[in-house]
Amino acid sequence: VDNKFNKEQQNAFYEILHLPNLNEEQRNAFIQSLKDDPSQSANLLAEAKKLNDAQA
């Protein structure tokens, strides 16, 4: 993981990586967004979790 991520951002990265119901395309999009703007990690994680739950 890129060293410019802080602890919260790293946690978001790993959580998104391991959400079971996202397809690869969705997962990659969230990860790319996280890399583009790490400050949005909490929002991105919340969105990813919502999508993950919706696809459960």
Rank of each mutant, 00 (worst) to 15 (best):
D37E: 08
Q40I: 10
D53K: 15
E24R: 05
E25T: 04
A48E: 00
S39W: 09
A48H: 00
S39F: 02
F30V: 01
Q55C: 12
F5D: 10
A29L: 05
L51C: 08
D36P: 01
L22E: 00
L34V: 09
L22I: 11
L45A: 05
P20M: 12
N11I: 14
H18G: 09
Q32W: 15
L17A: 03
Q26W: 07
A46K: 13
L17Y: 15
A56V: 09
I31K: 03
S41I: 12
L22K: 00
I16D: 00
D53Q: 11
H18N: 05
P38F: 03
E24L: 09
N43R: 09
D2S: 04
S33R: 15
F13N: 02
P20V: 04
I16E: 00
N43F: 15
N21G: 06
K35H: 06
K7R: 05
A12R: 04
N43L: 04
S41N: 03
N52Q: 03
A54T: 13
E47Y: 15
N3H: 05
L51M: 09
K4R: 08
P38S: 06
Q55F: 10
E8V: 01
P38V: 05
A12H: 07
V1I: 09
A56F: 12
N28V: 06
K35M: 09
E24N: 12
P20W: 07
L45C: 06
L22C: 00
A56G: 13
H18F: 06
K49C: 10
E24T: 04
L19G: 00
D53H: 14
L45D: 00
E24S: 13
N11T: 09
I16W: 01
N11E: 13
V1H: 11
D36R: 15
L19F: 04
P38H: 06
S33D: 06
L17D: 03
A29F: 15
F5H: 11
E47F: 15
D2F: 02
D36Q: 12
N6L: 04
Y14R: 11
K7F: 03
L44S: 03
N52H: 02
N52F: 02
D2I: 04
F5W: 07
K35F: 12
K4I: 15
Q55S: 13
F30E: 00
K4W: 14
I31H: 05
D2C: 09
E8H: 04
D36E: 07
L44P: 01
N11P: 02
D36G: 11
Y14V: 04
F13H: 07
Q26A: 04
A12V: 11
A56R: 05
N52T: 02
F30S: 01
A56C: 14
A29Y: 15
F13R: 06
I16P: 00
K49E: 03
L51T: 10
R27I: 07
K7H: 09
D53R: 14
A42C: 14
Q40T: 11
N11C: 14
A12L: 04
Q55Y: 14
A48Y: 03
Q10K: 08
F13G: 02
N6K: 01
L19C: 05
F13S: 03
P20T: 11
L34H: 01
N52C: 04
N43D: 07
P20I: 07
K49D: 02
F5G: 07
L19M: 08
P20R: 13
S39G: 11
E15R: 15
N43T: 09
I31P: 00
D37N: 09
Q32P: 00
L45S: 05
A42K: 06
L51W: 11
Q9F: 08
Q10T: 04
R27V: 08
L51V: 11
F13E: 02
K50R: 11
D37C: 07
S39N: 12
Q9N: 02
A12F: 05
Q26M: 06
L17V: 07
D36K: 09
L44K: 05
N28C: 14
V1S: 11
P20G: 10
V1W: 01
E8L: 02
Q26R: 03
E25K: 09
F5C: 14
S41R: 04
N11W: 15
N6T: 06
F13T: 06
D37H: 11
E8T: 02
S39C: 08
P38G: 06
V1F: 05
Q40D: 11
K35Q: 07
E8Q: 03
D36M: 13
L45Y: 12
H18I: 10
Q26F: 04
S33I: 10
A12C: 07
L19Y: 05
Y14C: 10
A54R: 12
R27F: 03
A42N: 10
A46Y: 14
A29D: 05
A46Q: 11
L22R: 00
N43C: 09
D37W: 08
Q32S: 08
I31N: 02
N28M: 13
A54N: 11
Q10I: 08
R27S: 02
